[in-house]
Design a protein around this nucleic acid. Structure first.
Length: 314
RNA sequence: GGCGGCAUAGCCAAGUGGCUAAGGCAGCGGUCUGCAAAACCGUUAUUCGCCGGUUCAAGUCCGGCUGCCGCCU
């Protein structure tokens, strides 16, 4: 809704999306392209939005930003309730600002859901209610996910059919929506169908061979630790951020916490970090592969990417 | 050189004569509508180191060979 109002009188704004798995080289390529096409960058990474989390999120340092304005970085505290909807709320005005300045808008990051939410909208639904969610979560803890799934089966068989009984996050979410809206989750989803198209998007996914990608991930993981990931995590604890926070349970931080708790020694911690990051990259690739609008490009061949962008902007 | 033990998927490993060879890890593939760096799901041995034998039937018993480990000389 919001975006339709903002852009009503103009043609659809153009967005250059640079997606790709972690460590595929999005940051430096995006800065290069932003220079060439007079652009600004909007972050599409669910963790770089948090302040004080720099090393573990591979947040581009000021020196790496090459003078390009970056948005949606450091916009939340680690204990803020940040999510896809909030991302969209903050991103749309940022896009409007860039368009008003007659600059090119680059959306750069690896969080598939955030990109999809921005491009295709999100179903109409009241904000999540912490009380309802807590209540459902307690029920989950006492009786298990299959118990809740049976209830979902009665209230909304279509959603129950789509959601695996063990998938507690989605079982709880579906029940929460039913409680909040008095409508079946599945009918709201069907009605929405990710059908909003407020923007014209060129979607580029950086494609690095699996082996090279994994090498890069392994190197970067080690570098993060050498660059002070553990100290950064300790500083977050000292600031009073709980190790229970979801931001603190992201890649890198949860590993550093395990090390600080002496659950893992340094070597074990690093190899776990590498492994979990490789798996994350795999999941990202699965997500982007499912998007048939995605243009796959090798970052080592920026000429191709450049001409795609050129064609799109003309 | 002698004696003993062990050899089952990339790794760990169950199986001790009888339907189509447990399980875990790693890997790979997938799902995803307000926690997404999350939460989930699926999948991997026509074959048990090699050769021969016993048996209606062998990963399972017997013999030989090869390799590894331990002990002895």
């Amino acid at each position: 809704m919001l975006c339709y109002l903002l852009f009503m009188k103009d043609p659809k704004p153009k967005l250059v999306i640079i997606a790709g798995p972690t460590a595929s080289g999005k940051t430096s390529l995006a800065v290069e392209m932003a220079h060439e096409f007079n652009g600004e960058i909007i972050n599409a990474d669910s963790m770089q939005v948090y302040r004080y989390m720099d090393i573990g999120t591979a947040k581009p340092a000021i020196s790496e930003r090459g003078g390009i304005v970056h948005h949606l970085i450091d916009v939340a505290d680690p204990d803020d309730d940040f999510n896809a909807s909030r991302y969209r709320e903050l991103t749309i005005p940022a896009i409007k600002g860039i368009i008003d300045r007659k600059k090119t808008c680059f959306i750069v990051g690896g969080t598939g859901l955030y990109i999809k939410t921005l491009l295709n909208g999100l179903m109409e639904c009241p904000a999540s209610d912490p009380d309802v969610r807590d209540e459902l979560f307690n029920e989950y803890r006492e009786k298990g996910s299959p118990f809740l799934h049976e209830r979902l089966m009665r209230l909304d068989p279509a959603s129950a059919g789509r959601i695996h009984p063990n998938d507690r996050t989605r079982v709880i979410r579906a029940l929460e929506i039913i409680r909040l809206t008095d409508r079946p989750h599945s009918s709201i989803i069907m009605e929405h169908g990710f059908n909003e198209r407020p923007f014209l998007a060129l979607k580029i996914c950086l494609n690095v061979g699996r082996e090279r990608l994994y090498d890069r991930i392994n190197d970067r993981s080690r570098h993060m630790v050498e660059a002070g990931l553990i100290d950064e995590t300790g500083a977050l604890l000292e600031k009073g951020y709980s190790p229970e926070l979801k931001s603190m349970n992201s890649l890198g931080y949860r590993h550093a916490l395990a090390f600080l708790r002496k659950e893992l020694n340094l070597d074990a911690m690093i190899s776990r970090l590498k492994q979990d990051t490789r798996r994350y990259a795999k999941r990202q690739l699965t997500w982007f592969r499912a998007d048939d609008e995605m243009i796959w490009a090798d970052p080592q061949n920026p000429g191709l990417i450049r001409s795609e962008i050129q064609g799109f902007l003309d």
